[in-house]
Simulated scan of single mutants.
Amino acid sequence: MERCIDDEIPFEIPDSWEWVRFYNIASFQNGDRSKNYPNRNEYVSNGVAWINTGHITSDGFLNVNTMNYITEEKYNSLSNGHIQKGDLVYCLRGATFGKVARIEPFSKGAIASSLMIIRPFDVSLRNYIYWYLRSPIAYIELHKYSNGSAQPNLAAKDVGKYLVPIPPLDEQIRILNESIRLLAIIENI
């Protein structure tokens, strides 16, 4: 049985905000791990994006220049891990553990088993979720549920247990705009 959120709240938030479990605001999907999993010798020069952790850029998008591609037929053989507009990808293991990206510029593709798809129930939460996952709060949650020491890893079901502070939409927009402004200042320094 899962513990009550009240027992785990790390700090107070404004009355207009709400603490929720991540699974209350998004769904999670692993990449396909079946016999149909693409091998390097199945990559093609043009096709459907085959996304792995190495394609996540420092600014949280996917790198077109290094992207691998698979055929439409291979893509259709995969039962899990198909991205769609509005998704985020999140790294579950290895050196890029906890890294997150928006799927742009791609609208069609599939993810490697080291990633999971985060699909917000309300697309208006997407940017807030992205910045949350880059925050110290999410970093604490990541390490609360991770296992493995030499090769840290995480299960998608555990990501769903993360505690997420949700502000009203207008406050989310203000936070996002201020975060972007401050990051631009930092990058210029």
Score class of each variant (00 low, 15 high):
Glu2Leu: 14
Asp7Cys: 12
Glu12Ser: 13
Ile13His: 05
Arg21Asn: 05
Arg21Lys: 14
Tyr23His: 13
Tyr23Pro: 02
Ile25Thr: 03
Ala26Val: 02
Phe28Ile: 11
Phe28Met: 11
Asn30Tyr: 15
Asp32Tyr: 08
Lys35Ser: 08
Asn39Ile: 00
Asn39Gly: 00
Asn39Asp: 08
Asn41Trp: 04
Ser45Thr: 14
Val48Pro: 03
Asn52Ser: 14
Gly54Tyr: 04
His55Gln: 12
Thr57Leu: 01
Ser58Cys: 09
Asp59Met: 00
Gly60Gln: 04
Asn63Val: 04
Asn65Leu: 09
Asn65Glu: 15
Glu73Ser: 13
Lys74Asp: 05
Ser79Trp: 03
Ile83Asn: 11
Gly86Met: 03
Val89Met: 11
Leu92Asp: 06
Arg93Phe: 07
Lys99Gly: 11
Val100Gly: 11
Ile103Glu: 07
Glu104Gln: 12
Ala110Asn: 15
Ile118Met: 00
Arg119Ser: 09
Arg119Val: 01
Phe121Ala: 02
Asp122Gln: 08
Leu125Val: 09
Arg126Asp: 08
Tyr128Lys: 03
Tyr130Ser: 00
Trp131Pro: 00
Tyr132Ile: 00
Ser135Val: 06
Ser135Ala: 05
Ala138Ile: 05
Ile140Trp: 07
Ile140Leu: 04
Glu141Ile: 02
Tyr145Val: 12
Gly148Ile: 01
Ala150Tyr: 00
Gln151Phe: 15
Leu154Asn: 10
Leu154Ala: 09
Lys157Ser: 13
Gly160Ile: 02
Lys161His: 02
Tyr162Pro: 10
Val164His: 01
Leu169Trp: 01
Gln172His: 05
Gln172Asn: 11
Asn177Pro: 00
Ile180Tyr: 09
Leu182Met: 08
Leu182Phe: 06
Ile185Gln: 15
Ile185Asp: 12
Glu187Met: 05
Glu187Phe: 08
Asn188Met: 04
Asn188Ile: 00
